[in-house]
Design a protein around this nucleic acid. Sequence first.
DNA 1: GTCTATAGCAGGATAGAC
DNA 2: GTCTATCCTGCTATAGAC
Lengths: 205, 205
Amino acid sequence: MSQDPAHASAPRSRHRIGLDDQATDGQSARTRIQDVALQLFIEEGYDKTSLREIAEKLGVTKAALYYHFPTKEAIVASLTEDRVVAVAKILEWANAQPRTEQTRQELIRRYAETMRGPRSGQIIRFFERNQATVKDLGAGEAMRKQMVEVMNLLSTKTEPYDVQLRRSLAIFAIHASWFAMREREWNEEEGQAAALKVAIDLVAD
Amino acid sequence: MSQDPAHASAPRSRHRIGLDDQATDGQSARTRIQDVALQLFIEEGYDKTSLREIAEKLGVTKAALYYHFPTKEAIVASLTEDRVVAVAKILEWANAQPRTEQTRQELIRRYAETMRGPRSGQIIRFFERNQATVKDLGAGEAMRKQMVEVMNLLSTKTEPYDVQLRRSLAIFAIHASWFAMREREWNEEEGQAAALKVAIDLVAD
DNA sequence: GTCTATAGCAGGATAGAC
DNA sequence: GTCTATCCTGCTATAGAC
């Protein structure tokens, strides 16, 4: 999952306080960069978030980031790869199933499961808020294609338009529990349970 | 609606072929800029669309654009202002109604009506695909607030989470008919009718 | 109304010291 | 692993001629 050619085991040589030494909470430098970058990508947008800004927030310089990631885009790639693999597995499973209501519901259940990871919700949020930018980012293209494939599994072109639309909204229901209702105050558990319930209903006959 | 202090009636003085003289199809220079800009903002993203690119596509230079719009952001503002006014009117109406199922359905109907204009769908598409960027653009802020207000009118905080989510999805249903299902081939009429049907059902009890 | 030219700045990325 | 310094590019916006 982690393809870091350069420094599989980076030498902890110098005595200066750097990104990698702030790991008193068990977070690697790589992870800290990912967290800060993702947060900024969501709040400010990918384009408007400069590497300088990320570095500043981490207390280092731009150049330091380039030791951990070859490009800005690579940060996004590292963020999304795990989720892409997880969704790909679900799609593989779904493609081998008969196209029944029960399959749709199980597909939704499994898809909703992918939102349980600590960063999953944020990654979706990032994706939704940066669609235009992310679409030629490779990682974004992959996620977009997967979303379309999920929707295509939920309905066929021969079905009425309103059915197609209704079923597709199930995906938005799952995603939306993370971003559409920011104003309101419910906890994660409840939100996800509600989203799953609504989504399941949307794909029912 | 059109706040152009500088050139309410621009003098058609010179003989050179410019933006304003290409109006053989009845489009003003202003309109042509808006159309091209909006299209690029959707396809490439607001940030990544430079004024040079817009100008090039119109066969003029960057500087020419600055005659018609004082800033890049002003183009967005000019694009969204009519819709913001239209939605504001609907919100004003809705706020004066009792919070019944019938009101919700009528609210959805009226909201769906705003998608009938030629550019409305594109503007929503622009908004959705550039959320992160557009959020500190003034125009974007206004639209975001309106969307939240519509959702708040569709459900109250005391209602169960799944009901709140379900009702909020009605808005996405209306919007989605314009962008979520690009892969599939149905005409506008059918798509909007389907969206309205789904949305109405989502706000029903 | 449109042009050329340019100011002024910020971005991503690299080189090389430590 | 992180730094300083810098290259190169592209952006928004402005000045002033025509």
